Computed example of a mutant assay.
Amino acid sequence: MNNKDFDMGIVNDFFKYDYHDRGMIKWQGFYLSDHTAALNKKNADLNQEYRYKPQQTLEKITSILAEAYSQRRQVVIQLNELDRNNVNLPDVTTLIHGYNANEIVIDSNKFVRISDIRNIGYV
C-alpha cells in the first residue's frame, strides 16, 4: 500500500466513532502489590496531620534545652514553621549538641533559633 491508496478519512472515522478509550482502566493491571503498598504509604505520610502543640514559654523551653544538653537526652521539637500548604512541619527528634546566645545546634550541625521553637519535650 502506498500513500496514494491510504485513506485518512477511514482512520479518522475509526477513532471518531468506533474506538472507545478506556482511560486508566487498562493500566490498573500493571500495578504490583509492592507498588500499591508504596503508594499507600506515601499517601498516608502526606495525609498525616501534624497537630499544633501549645506554645511554651521561653523559660520552659530554655530549661528543657539546658537539662537535655547537660544530660544528653533526646528531645522532640516542634517548630513555628509551616510548609507551603500551611501544615506544621514534622516534629524533630534530636540531641542538643551545643548552643550559643540565640540558637541551638541539633543533628547534622543544623542551627535552630530558640525563638522558632513552639514546643519541646523529652522522648
Rank of each mutant, 00 (worst) to 15 (best):
G121T: 15
E103Y: 10
F14H: 14
I10R: 14
N85M: 13
I96V: 08
E81A: 12
Y122I: 09
R84M: 11
D5C: 03
S63G: 01
I120N: 05
V76Y: 08
K42C: 03
S33K: 12
V123G: 02
I96Q: 04
W27P: 00
Q74H: 08
E67T: 10
S63T: 10
K53Q: 11
I120E: 05
D34H: 12
T57W: 05
V123Y: 10
D91Y: 11
V105P: 01
Y69F: 15
N12C: 13
L65R: 07
R84V: 08
E49T: 14
T36V: 14
E103P: 00
H97G: 06
G9F: 02
D116A: 13
L46Q: 10
I77D: 03
Q78T: 12
I114F: 01
K53T: 05
K53S: 09
F15E: 05
R118D: 06
N3F: 11
K110C: 09
N80K: 15
V123F: 10
Y122M: 09
F30P: 00
I106S: 03
I10T: 13
T94N: 10
I77W: 01
V105D: 04
K16A: 12
I10Q: 13
F30C: 00
I114H: 02
Y17P: 03
L39P: 02
S33A: 12
L58D: 10
Q55C: 07
M24L: 09
P54D: 15
V75D: 04
M24Q: 01
N88L: 14
N109K: 07
D116P: 01
V112I: 15
I114S: 02
K16Y: 04
